[in-house]
């Protein structure tokens, strides 16, 4: 049992560290002006992606939003294809048409991410509807932020998902801000998940900076869904460290209290598991090895992405219609 837990912690740690280091590498390369698209980095929010995706199977589908890197990587999306996409290369996951805000890796079950807020929530419900109609053993997860919970399409989607008892896991990453606008400016003072409960979902919460807690909540939700239960709404509290869009810190803008930023950084999801692993010899070895392995993988992936081909403008009309 203990061994199983350690191996789970190691796996979640590895997923989160990999996301963290990839995002840091993107931030490091970004000033070179070769990634010519907006990037919304997931640093600080790794535990939600890692915990939820660890509860899913390969054939389960995931949809995401503008801040998709963590979800894509946690679900098993190709790192090289993601970086090539951000670099606008022919080998990118959208052959350069999408950029950072349009991730997809169908082989990994990552069904698509787009930046229109709330746009993929109904798609996830539709994919779950199709799975149910086709008798497929599949759970569909959609990640979205607290801001998305203000979009009408979300309520419309939840209503239909509950009505038809569809296998959907709604994961709300509540990071308290929509760009620079605080949650309290946008929503009344009540927990988001209580609204989902009122809509008929089974709603649960998890500390979004605790990958193990997220994994436990997601596992239980997914088990419910596989057993034909009602849609589950999982609200995870977490925090974005860097600017809404771009590679930098933006604390100089003073839109978030300094004490708040400091408290959330102190609750770093990667360090949280590192502390546990650090108490064990095998854990220390694991972390040192993970750091080396991930660093090598990232170097290779960046080199591969940068060496990628130039997509051709003349190919574009061919993608317009199937």
């Amino acid at each position: 049992m203990k061994h199983l837990l350690i191996s789970r912690i190691e796996s979640l740690y590895h997923t989160m560290l990999r996301i963290r280091r990839v995002e840091e590498a993107i931030a490091g390369h970004y000033p070179m002006q070769e990634m010519r698209c907006p990037v919304h980095l997931s640093i600080g929010q790794e535990a939600v992606a890692a915990g939820v995706c660890a509860a899913l199977r390969q054939q389960d589908g995931v949809f995401s939003n503008h801040r998709a890197h963590a979800h894509y990587l946690a679900k098993g999306g190709s790192l090289t294809a993601m970086l090539a996409e951000i670099y606008g290369k022919a080998e990118g996951c959208c052959k350069g048409i999408g950029g950072s805000m349009h991730m997809i890796d169908l082989a990994a079950g990552f069904l698509g991410a787009v930046p229109i807020v709330g746009a993929t929530v109904p798609l996830a419900v539709g994919a779950a509807w199709a799975a149910k109609l086709r008798g497929e053993d599949k759970v569909i997860t959609v990640f979205f932020g607290d801001g998305t919970f203000e979009e009408g399409a979300v309520y419309e989607s939840i209503n239909f998902a509950v009505l038809h008892r569809l296998p959907v896991l709604f994961v709300c990453e509540n990071n308290l801000y929509a760009c620079y606008t605080r949650l309290s400016t946008r929503q009344p003072d009540r927990p988001i998940h209580t609204v989902a409960t009122a809509c008929g979902c089974k709603a649960v919460t998890a500390d979004g900076n605790d990958a193990l807690a997220v994994f436990d909540a997601a596992s239980s939700a997914v088990a419910d869904l596989r057993a034909g239960g009602y849609p589950v709404f999982l609200e995870c509290s977490t925090y974005r460290w860097r600017e809404h869009c771009g590679p930098n810190m933006d604390d100089d803008l003073d839109y978030r209290p300094k004490t708040e930023v400091a408290a959330w950084k102190a609750a770093c999801p990667v360090s949280r598991l590192a502390k546990i692993l650090g108490t064990l010899d095998e854990g220390q070895n694991f972390m040192a090895h993970a750091e080396r392995e991930i660093s090598a993988e990232i170097n290779t992936a960046f080199a591969g992405a940068l060496a990628g081909g130039i997509p051709q403008q003349t190919d574009l009309p061919g993608y317009l219609y199937a």
Binding site: P122, A130, G152, A153, S157
Partner: peptide
Amino acid sequence: DMPLAENGMTGICIGAAISGM
């Protein structure tokens, strides 16, 4: 029949369409 939720339902139909329906 469907709920009176045109935008959400369109997205749901798109989700079903990209999933084989």
